[in-house]
Amino acid sequence: MARSITMQVARYRPDREAEPTMQSYDVPLRKDWAILDGLNHIKDELDGTLSYRWSCRMGICGSCGMTVNGEPKLTCATFLTDYAPGPVRVEPLRNFPVVRDLVVDIGDFMAKLSVVQPWIIRKDEETPDGEYLQTPAELEDYKQFSMCINCMLCYSACPIYGLNEHFLGPAAIALAQRYNLDSRDQGSADRMDALSASTGVWDCTYVGECSTACPKNVDPAGAIQRYKLTAATETLKSFLMPRGGR
């Protein structure tokens, strides 16, 4: 096996250039090295000016998402050897403004997360003395959607978000469903306005790439389709029983 691999890394220094350029680095090709280890090698040994985000190195923090050979990937969970003999192209996440090099502006996603009120909403007057109890079956209903690590790979994979930045997007809708389907939650009516707005679920045309890109098998595409059915049923009900319910 070759002892090194070429990494083509996107550079963008807003003080120096108008648009990103690619810069090549040769890094050791070790079988236990992920793309992120290659970037760390560049930063430590070859070029200290390279900027990128990372933290846990174990697929939990969701910080190190980038575009690797055109695909949205967690760079800590994507191995250099899978791209041998190379070169391997590392670019920032698509569909987000690039702040510098491989760092994108995640402000839009952060704003969207809070729009769907991703916390347990209770209508009771008083807080109970103990916990809200839940059966394993009730846990199973939403558990899949609770695995999201906010890495934004789904936004990067979604062409609809790329075309329309106002679209609420995969992770935010999946997270809304995580609480809507939680037996302890009573806030699905509060989330409905954001979800069924023109920028909510109806913008999605089920490309399905969000679920393909998701490193945690959250299946946002499935969550969105299921919510469409829920919202459509609610609308029908409100037509049939204008006074009843919401």
Binding site: R94, P97, V98, D105, A111, K112, L163, E165
Partner: peptide, 21 residues
């Protein structure tokens, strides 16, 4: 909501790079 993000974080520096689809 995202219009405000274009100029955040970067202060006096040029705007973040946006790739056109």
């Amino acid at each position: 909501m995202s219009d405000t993000t274009a100029t955040s974080h970067v202060g006096n520096q040029p705007r973040p790079y946006r790739r056109r689809v």
